[in-house]
Design a protein around this nucleic acid. Structure first.
Lengths: 126, 126
DNA sequence: GTAATCTGACTACATTTGTAGTATAATACT
DNA sequence: AGTATTATACTACAAATGTAGTCAGATTAC
């Protein structure tokens, strides 16, 4: 809908934490990210602050220790990001990308089954 | 295979031109990009030079006017880029992304038919 | 209550990216 | 051959990004 501000690569990692659970304090975000990255606490703090500045993350400042939460849903950010990605990398041809990915191994048999089901139900709803 | 250097958003546009046809002179690349962007010739030239510097694009310097060509295939760059993209945006779950995209409208009935066919042939080859 | 610690605000600094401009050397026109 | 044009090389500069550090006020621990 509205314009989602740009979210950089590192910032995405922070957002993923907050989408998983929120609100969280900075320290909780830091603790969470240190399991998967080697970023210094201050670095993570900076990323959080920037996201707040960009209005992608909100802050509760009424508590002694601030807590942070996403201002956009994960779904809408994923869609926006993927749309520009597909346009740039696949010239807008969603299908090309889908084909490339379906042809790779990374899908389990169950995944395939599920995808097929979705595809089957797809044409009806037009 | 090898490490593909980072290709920025704008640089991707240049690469797309070269993958479409190469080798091309700088002017040919410029002419091509000016149909879809409003970049100044010098800007495009800079992008080309940076790609050469990054060793993503090669140059024939034996002609009076240089010609440029990609050093990586479009396919391998797409895969590399998409892999890191999916990891960051969808936590590595290719399926989540596929589902999200299949559920959107952007696919024609033919596309769907084709995808279904690919899916059908998929489980066999394991 | 005083010192140690933590939190939040602000500052720092190199790299990458977007977006060109200038100068120089080669080429082409007349 | 002299001049205009062009291609290439180099330089410029602000914004975004990655990656932190410093400082001051609030909080906690003695």
């Amino acid at each position: 809908m509205k314009n989602i501000p740009n979210i950089s690569e590192s910032e995405w990692e922070v957002m993923n934490i907050l989408w998983n659970k929120s609100p969280l304090t900075a320290n909780e975000v830091i603790a969470s990210l240190q399991q998967t990255t080697d970023w210094k606490p201050k670095t993570i703090r900076t990323l959080l602050d920037r996201l707040v500045h960009k209005n992608v993350v909100g802050v509760n400042r009424n508590q002694k220790v601030y807590t942070f939460y996403p201002l956009y849903s994960q779904d809408e950010c994923q869609r926006a990001e993927t749309e520009s990605f597909v346009k740039r990398i696949y010239g807008g041809a969603v299908k090309s990308m889908l084909v490339q990915f379906i042809e790779e191994e990374s899908l389990s048999d169950d995944d395939i089954k599920e995808l097929r089901k979705i595809l089957d139900e797809k044409p009806k709803e037009k």
